[in-house]
Each structure stands twice: as C-alpha cells, then as structure tokens.
Amino acid sequence: MSPEELRKIANWIRKRDLQAVYEAGAGHIGGEMSVTDLLTALYFHTMSVNPDAPLDPQRDRLVLSKGHTALALYVTLAKKGFIPESEIATFLKPHSRLNGHPNRTKVPGVETNTGPLGHGLPVAVGMAKAAQLNGDSWRVFVITGDGEMQEGSNWEAIMAAAQFKLDNLTLIIDHNRLQQGARVADTNNLAPIAPKVEAFGWMVEEIDGHDMKQICKALAPETTETGKPKCVVAHTNKGQGISFMTDNVAWHHKVPNEEQFRQGMSELEKALS
C-alpha cells in the first residue's frame, strides 16, 4: 500500500478507537493514538500475516508490550480481518473477549498476553531465538512505550538479543515522551534512548513515528544488519491527531465527554480531506 493509503487506514483506526473509548467509558486513548501509525504500517505493509491462518507457523509476529493500548491493536486486527469490525463495540463489556489488555487465547492475531510492562521484549527475544534455532525466516516485532523502557527486564533482553545476534528481531519504541501521570523526563529520564541501545550492540534508527514513508522504510528487511537486532526509536505524540489530546499527559487514560468526542471525530474526519 502507498503511504497515502496507509494514512487513510490509520485515520479510520483512530476514529474507531475514539468511538470505542467514548462508548466504553474507559481506555488508554493517548497512547493508542500515538501507536496507531506504527500498527498500521506493520499490519498493512510490513508483516506477513494472514487472518485466515492466524497460527501459520511461518507468520511474522508482533508483541504489543505496551498492552494497555490493546484497543488500538483490536481495531487494527479488525480492519485486517482477524476479528469482525462489529465486535469492537463489545470492548470492555461483560463476557467480551476484547479486554483492557490483549489475550492470545481469546483474540486471533494476538501473539502473547501483555500488560505488566517490561515483559513483551523478553518474550519477543525468545520467539526470535526460536526462529533462529529452527532456521526459519519469519520476523519478530515488539512495540514498547518509552516509559516502559525504565523496566530493567528490557535491558536484560536487549543484552541477550545482541548476544544471540537476533537480526530477525525489531524493537519499536513508541517515544511519545509521556507516561502515566508525568513526563518520562521527570520520572526517570532515558533520553537520548538511541545511543544507549546502540551501546549494547544493536542497530538503531530514529524516525518520525507518524511519517508512513519513514516507518515503512525503517521496518523493511533490507534495512537490517546481519548479526544485529534492530531498534527503531519512533518519535511520536501522545494523542496524535486530536488537538486537545496531543502531548497532554492527562489523556493517558482520560475519557472524552460528548463535546470532546464530537470535536475529536471532526478533527480526524478533516485530517485527510
């Protein structure tokens, strides 16, 4: 798909996500807006996945380590055809399989349960090592938040991935500079992230995480380096696409009222007009 086609899909995902948060009265909309372009590029451009065969042994894998943004993943999976689009309306309702954090035993396309931060990258390292041992060509992608990178387990996994020369592994850091209740810089400042990861023996690239051309290029297999895992530091905005949410820490898990919902939908509808 072209960057323009991908932008249209991302815009649809943002609108459906906003509607679902408003209707459910809960969600993590700020981080969902920041990660949407990354998810769109992965599922509609980069990854080899088939909604008709979600457990294909040769599929590429995505681990959404920042599992609190599960709704963005659900909407993306629905748009791709893994689950019915109509099912998004059940988000967080009793007996719905669309919980606040993704569950691989319930939702086709979800590779592992996530939510406790710092777990996704270690799991992805295990997946990538399994592919390496089997001589398989499938790739593993993992998305973490930048606040999540304060977890020590991530840095242990980063060391292991370099030791094992997992060039089939790509870590994408959703670097929106905000975490729950505060700015990352005011909590445990990791910036600049790129040289820290590079020092562990990774190939690192920094991009605009809302520029489809840059995202797709950074995730392409030809941009990897033999024997090195890759890290993409994606500079994003929390609440991307909605003016009053953008770069606003209050929207980590705030729910829009009716006026805010209508304004947000209006802004998203105008985004590509």
Rank of each mutant, 00 (worst) to 15 (best):
D52C: 06
R61V: 15
A70R: 04
S86D: 12
L71R: 05
E156T: 08
G126H: 03
A41Y: 08
V21N: 02
R14H: 01
R7E: 15
Y22I: 01
D211K: 05
K254D: 02
V233E: 09
A157C: 09
T144F: 09
P116I: 14
H101Y: 04
N99F: 11
W138E: 14
G152I: 11
A26Q: 08
A131L: 13
Q19E: 15
L71V: 05
M265V: 02
V184S: 04
W138K: 13
R16G: 09
N237L: 09
E4Q: 12
E4A: 10
H45M: 02
M33D: 06
L42W: 07
K228T: 03
R61L: 15
A70L: 03
K213T: 14
I143K: 07
L39V: 07
E267Q: 02
G100C: 11
R7N: 10
L169W: 03
A271E: 04
F244S: 01
S34P: 07
A191K: 13
L268M: 00
A234N: 03
K106Y: 11
I29S: 10
G81Y: 05
G120H: 12
K238D: 02
T36W: 00
Q214P: 05
H45A: 12
K15M: 14
R16D: 13
I215P: 07
E85A: 10
A182Q: 14
H119V: 14
G100W: 03
G135S: 12
K230T: 04
N237S: 08
A194Q: 12
L166N: 10
N134F: 10
E269F: 01
V21L: 06
G126T: 05
S243F: 00
R14T: 10
I88T: 06
T236M: 05
V107Q: 09
E4I: 07
R61D: 04
D37Y: 04
R139Y: 09
E269N: 04
S2A: 05
M265R: 02
M159F: 13
D56C: 09
V255C: 00
S243P: 00
S96D: 09
E259D: 03
R14G: 07
A72M: 05
I193R: 13
E151H: 06
N134V: 07
P116M: 07
I29A: 06
S273R: 01
V107T: 14
L219V: 06
L133S: 11
P94W: 06
T246K: 12
